[in-house]
Nucleic acid binder design. Sequence first.
DNA 1: CCGGATCCGTTTCGATACTG
DNA 2: CAGTATCGAAACGGATCCGG
Lengths: 154, 154
Amino acid sequence: MKSKSTSPAEALPGRPSHCPIHFALETFGDAWTLLIVRDLMFKERSTYTDFLRAGEGIATNILADRLARLGRAGIITRERAGDRPGSHYRLTPKGIDLLPILLEIIAWSAKYDPDTAAPRAFVRRVHRERAALGREIRRALRGRKQSATKEMNS
Amino acid sequence: MKSKSTSPAEALPGRPSHCPIHFALETFGDAWTLLIVRDLMFKERSTYTDFLRAGEGIATNILADRLARLGRAGIITRERAGDRPGSHYRLTPKGIDLLPILLEIIAWSAKYDPDTAAPRAFVRRVHRERAALGREIRRALRGRKQSATKEMNS
DNA sequence: CCGGATCCGTTTCGATACTG
DNA sequence: CAGTATCGAAACGGATCCGG
């Protein structure tokens, strides 16, 4: 299967000077991948069925594939929790470090999307107190607490 | 349910609460799209053939499609320059505002990509003097001067 | 029931050849 | 030089089936 496939998500074409953008695209450049990361980071979804019923309509095979890929990339880990049914997925430090990128994307979309669904308060915090918001979300992701993340829910 | 196409790049599936990530993915979430934006922002490529010979190996139809899509999204404009052969593409203010996202991606990749091709000096500036670097690149993009952007070249 | 794996019809993407 | 046309190759999405 080394047939020089040119899937943007798995292996980018050409392979020129291997710029940083390539690495990022290979790792999380896929649309579904980014949505999963968003769910893990801002929403409270963390299980397989959480993602399935997130309303995006992702297929089971696609979801399984993306979760496996994210795991291989070291962005998420699967924890077979004993207390709750099903396995939980969690962002690794490497995954949590994607936060600044997501915040920039949110800021850009809020500026140019005529009908953003992002809460005004959250967007304002992204602009005005980015550092504090970042620390708050990181703290929430490490521990169990979900505080700032709730603001993103629709 | 909806037999409407669900291409991640053009129109995202489900269409749930239309979160900011969706808008971003629809606009520049495609791999090739992001590479074009990168070329316009950091490299000195600005024409159709510049992109073609960028070494990425993009096909002509894909390039034409992405350029048209970026134009429709208001991220780039096509200028039929009289002085030089061929048409030049340029980032609009909306496109230039993607810069923080790209810088965050570069920073993340530099941190986790074992063999990044990004010059050390540039990455250091991304971390240490982000604001100044941003202003410098924006200035270069507006005018004709290319100063900081040269640092990204391999 | 949850977490997938497999099969298959459809759609989209991408490489090449070709054209204004 | 700047794109279109064609066509094969993947990826996607849906349904179904399977192991725990």
